Simulated assay, not measured.
Amino acid sequence: MLTKLKQQCGGQFTSKMEGMVTDLTLAKENQTSFEEYLSNNPNANPGIDLTVLVLTTGFWPSYKSFNLNLPAEMVKGVEVFRDFYQTKTKHRNLKWIYSLGTCNIIGNFEPRSMELIVTTYQASALLLFNSSDRLSYSEIKTQLNLTDDDVARLLHSLSCAKYKILKKEPNTKSIAPTDHFEFNSWFTDKMRRIKIPLPPVDEKKKVIEDVDKDRRYAIDASIVRIMKSRQVLDHQQLVMECVKQLDPMFKPNHKAIKKRIEALIARDYLERGKDNPNLLRYLA
Results as ranks from 00 to 15, higher is better:
3 T>Q: 13
4 K>H: 01
6 K>E: 15
7 Q>K: 11
8 Q>P: 03
10 G>E: 06
12 Q>L: 08
12 Q>C: 04
12 Q>M: 05
15 S>R: 12
16 K>D: 10
16 K>L: 11
17 M>A: 12
18 E>H: 02
18 E>G: 06
19 G>Q: 02
20 M>R: 15
22 T>K: 15
27 A>K: 10
27 A>D: 07
30 N>R: 13
32 T>V: 12
32 T>D: 06
34 F>K: 11
34 F>T: 11
37 Y>L: 07
48 I>L: 14
50 L>F: 12
51 T>M: 08
52 V>Y: 06
54 V>K: 14
56 T>D: 13
57 T>P: 00
57 T>G: 04
59 F>I: 00
60 W>D: 02
61 P>C: 03
62 S>K: 14
65 S>L: 02
65 S>K: 11
66 F>S: 02
67 N>V: 02
69 N>R: 03
69 N>F: 04
70 L>E: 09
71 P>R: 08
71 P>K: 06
72 A>K: 10
72 A>D: 10
73 E>A: 14
75 V>Q: 15
76 K>W: 06
86 Q>L: 05
86 Q>W: 07
88 K>D: 03
90 K>A: 12
90 K>L: 15
95 K>Y: 15
99 S>W: 00
101 G>L: 05
102 T>S: 15
106 I>M: 01
107 G>H: 01
116 L>R: 03
117 I>W: 03
118 V>M: 02
119 T>A: 01
121 Y>A: 06
122 Q>T: 08
122 Q>P: 00
122 Q>Y: 00
123 A>Q: 03
125 A>C: 07
127 L>Y: 14
129 F>G: 05
134 R>M: 14
135 L>Q: 10
136 S>W: 04
149 D>C: 01
155 L>P: 05
156 H>G: 04
156 H>F: 14
157 S>W: 06
158 L>P: 13
158 L>E: 12
163 Y>N: 09
165 I>R: 08
166 L>A: 12
168 K>R: 15
177 P>E: 08
178 T>R: 02
180 H>F: 04
183 F>Q: 07
184 N>A: 05
189 D>W: 09
192 R>A: 14
194 I>L: 01
195 K>N: 04
199 P>W: 01
200 P>K: 14
202 D>S: 06
204 K>F: 11
206 K>P: 03
209 E>Q: 09
212 D>W: 00
216 R>C: 01
219 I>Q: 06
219 I>R: 03
224 V>P: 02
225 R>F: 00
226 I>S: 03
227 M>A: 03
229 S>M: 07
232 V>D: 13
233 L>D: 10
234 D>T: 08
240 M>L: 05
241 E>N: 08
241 E>D: 07
242 C>H: 01
243 V>K: 15
244 K>S: 12
247 D>F: 07
248 P>N: 07
253 N>E: 11
254 H>D: 14
255 K>V: 12
256 A>K: 14
261 I>C: 11
263 A>C: 00
264 L>R: 01
267 R>T: 10
269 Y>S: 08
270 L>E: 10
273 G>H: 10
273 G>D: 12
274 K>F: 09
275 D>F: 02
275 D>Q: 13
279 L>Y: 06
281 R>L: 07
281 R>N: 15
283 L>I: 15
284 A>I: 11
284 A>E: 13
